[in-house]
Design a protein around this nucleic acid. Structure first.
Lengths: 204, 204
DNA sequence: CTTTGATTTGACCAACTGGTCAAACTCACG
DNA sequence: CGTGAGTTTGACCAGTTGGTCAAATCAAAG
């Protein structure tokens, strides 16, 4: 454990390498399925050396999670009450879809945790995410009441966006096998836009 | 290991108890996160006793998986080419949704495997599921070409159905936390029916 | 009741895992 | 250079885990 002075060049490099390696390993084997040795090897360090930079396996995991959550909520935060409702929602969907393409490991790390009952995330979900969802559900409800988009249960609408977009990252192994040569992300943007446009465009 | 005679009354009971316990444990901790001791305790047996009925932890897991896949594909197999297209699809969605409500552990067990890259399922997905999906995608495409439902990428349509319905089982921890008192399965059937009806009902 | 095969268990083992520690090495800077 | 802080490592440890085995117990058919 280095002092709490400003981090050395080597400290910066190695801590970054460890977090990068840990993301790889944790996202593909889960917390319990990953070993410190695996992470160390993937980061190009020995196990004791890795434990010189992080006090424990759990500490690495927690640091990863803390960074993840903010990134994960940002696209939803950006849903703008002042914007054109349908376009705002469609933009949110595309943003989430891009995150699945560009950060699939982060998505799978999150999925792993939730599927296993969110033991280490429950508190954040019940506080931060809960509040954000309440707020945005209100916003959606407002748009529906004003007739600017079709009616639908606002929370289920949010769930469906998460589910549809994250599916391409979380179930990547299955999706790619079934799509053969075709890249899933070629047709996904249009598919999802069409889906939500048909569903939400007001009947006039 | 009992002989390969007809299974005893006790054998039947204990093997069933083990598989039931294993489903519980595996689905909430993943393969590596689960221990034989946990499963044995949950089944009310000692570890050596459990290993008298199954040769290894992996054998239990494999037997669980083998049983799971058939059950999992049945609802899709039941998509009837002779039926009314929109109603067939909506019925399929509701069937899948019911499975998420009634068999969430099976859904999470499957999700756990796929998220982690489907190491033990890749072959079955690339053979059985692939063929079934090709067949049903053709069927959907036919319905679209005939103008009986709106156009949309058939495989992505299937993915979206899986994703939306399984989400309620796989992300149960998150969904329930965010819904508060309300049972997610109260509004989900109507939400999904509305979604697919709006999306697929032909414009005439 | 006895016998025989089915069932159960305590004791045990080797491999693995998270983590420690003192000793060795490297680097930047005066 | 030399020196002290920062870095790396081999050896090690205690707890856990999947799995084995011989001995003990149980069930049921004769």
């Amino acid at each position: 454990m280095p002092a709490d002075r400003a981090p050395t060049r080597i400290q910066k490099k190695n801590r970054a390498a460890i977090l990068e390696a840990a993301l790889d390993v944790f996202s593909s084997h889960g917390f319990r399925g990953s070993t410190v040795d695996q992470i160390a090897k993937a980061a190009g360090l020995s196990k004791p050396n890795l434990l010189y930079y992080f006090p424990s396996k759990e500490a690495i995991f927690n640091e990863l999670m803390a960074g993840l959550l903010d990134t994960w909520l940002d696209p939803l935060r950006a849903l703008n009450p002042e914007g054109e409702p349908l376009e705002e929602i469609l933009a949110y969907v595309q943003r989430k879809l891009q995150m699945s393409r560009d950060f699939p490991r982060e998505s799978r790390l999150y999925a792993n945790e939730i599927v296993q009952g969110a033991p280490r995330l429950h508190d954040v979900i019940a506080s931060d995410l809960y509040v954000l969802v309440e707020e945005k559900a209100q916003l959606l409800q407002g748009w529906m009441d004003a007739g600017r988009i079709n009616r639908a249960h606002p929370k289920h609408l949010l769930f469906s966006i998460w589910s549809l977009t994250q599916h391409y990252a979380d179930f990547d192994a299955q999706v790619r096998t079934l799509m053969g040569d075709e890249d899933p992300f070629d047709a996904a943007p249009l598919y999802l836009e069409t889906l939500y446009r048909r569903m939400l465009t007001p009947k006039t």
